[in-house]
Design a protein around this nucleic acid. Structure first.
Lengths: 218, 218
DNA sequence: ACACACCTGTGTCCGCCGGACACTTCGGTG
DNA sequence: CACCGAAGTGTCCGGCGGACACAGGTGTGT
């Protein structure tokens, strides 16, 4: 009685809404969205919740687990692919995944290496592999195709996977400065000067799909 | 006189061969090769040279510069592509780059993000772009093609870029445990159980080259 | 011959990191 | 009322990158 009365009365000005894994992960995601993955330290996350860093260790066993929960929450529920045909389905899938990764630019960086994957993350892979269902590809080929595609998505995500020499100012300067040593690069970059900055994404996607189509038709 | 005599006499047991950027970078590379990029700290590198960590800062301005020098030395001189035709040339290029990255498994991890590239590293890109010289592709397309290809190399390099769900034991266990939720994955992995572990590499390479060939012929 | 400047390496200090461990505090139950 | 377990805290540790002042030797101008 007394305690439930206390809870009721306390509800209004409840200063501390009780620490949960969800709230901790949300704080970490917010931090990563704003300041990058490197800014996610136990103290920063704790500070954002007005709590000592050690309090977090009551809810996550270590930083890796916090990261895992952050990823699982940030990727969100896997999509339903409504388009017709594997190519349209995979295009839809790639765009959705790209959107998600653009909303959380630290995701590519955080999802490298061997680690525990949550059900939502696996669900995304499931959706892509399922899209290749009626194509006649073997299981290994379907897995490899999804791997190839998602690798490309990761690589064209600016924050982490990207090769710096696509639109890198410093690189272009260096190429120009030592043009005699890199004639092919000078020619290519001159020609590419006013190209769509998103071209690598669409270019790669088209090549991959064309290559897959050739295999499927054979 | 005295000092040259001292130098001569000292030559035999010259305890300290003088710190240079090359020696420092070599120590860093050795460390990274053996224990991974994470093991490369200023103190560890210094310890390997029997020197205080602060001594290193006389030769490199900060850790990022040390990393840059390590990369430039580790990638080595760019190759001469002797094969005939763009496809054979790029295959040769990809294999050589893959060899280099296998010799230094930390390279993929170290070469992400925006950073200063050295002449040797740029030279590798030059070689690949040059291989696409007579194909009729525009400059932007040649750059995008090389970007796509080298992204695939990075992604299939086990240490960093790889998606864990290719041959990950834990993942396969989880798929099996919750098979009802991931029917397409169950089917695909069952079928792929005894596949070549290197299949993703060759699969992706073939798809990319096929896609490029289609574009070049058009 | 001497003083000076420079170059190389060192010691001390700082703030930040992840994390182990022992503690308080408090609410619910016997 | 006594107890227990859960939640949050404080203290400490080793390691990290790096700023800064300093020591020692060596070459050079006077």
């Amino acid at each position: 009685m007394t305690e439930s009365a206390g809870l009721l009365w306390g509800l209004g000005e409840q200063g501390r809404p009780a620490l949960t894994v969800q709230r901790i992960a949300a704080a970490g995601i917010g931090l990563a969205d704003e300041a990058g993955l490197a800014a996610v330290s136990m103290q920063q996350v704790a500070g954002r919740l007005d709590v000592t860093k050690m309090a977090l260790y009551r809810h996550v066993v270590n930083k890796a687990e916090l990261l895992a929960v952050m990823i699982e929450i940030a990727v969100g529920a896997p999509p339903e692919l409504t388009a017709d045909g594997w190519r349209a389905k995979l295009t839809q899938w790639a765009l959705l995944m790209r959107e998600t990764w653009q909303r959380h630019p630290w995701l590519p960086e955080a999802t490298v290496g061997s680690r525990a994957m949550g059900p939502r993350e696996i669900g995304w892979t499931e959706a892509a592999v399922a899209a290749l269902g009626g194509t006649g590809l073997t299981g290994a080929q379907r897995m490899d195709a999804v791997f190839l595609l998602s690798g490309h998505i990761r690589n064209t995500q600016a924050t982490s996977g990207t090769q710096p020499w696509t639109r890198d100012k410093r690189l272009n300067e260096q190429i120009a400065a030592h043009g005699d040593r890199f004639p092919a690069l000078v020619a290519a970059t001159d020609d590419a000067a006013d190209a769509d900055p998103d071209s690598s994404w669409e270019f790669g996607l088209a090549r991959i799909f064309d290559g897959l189509e050739l295999l499927i038709q054979a």
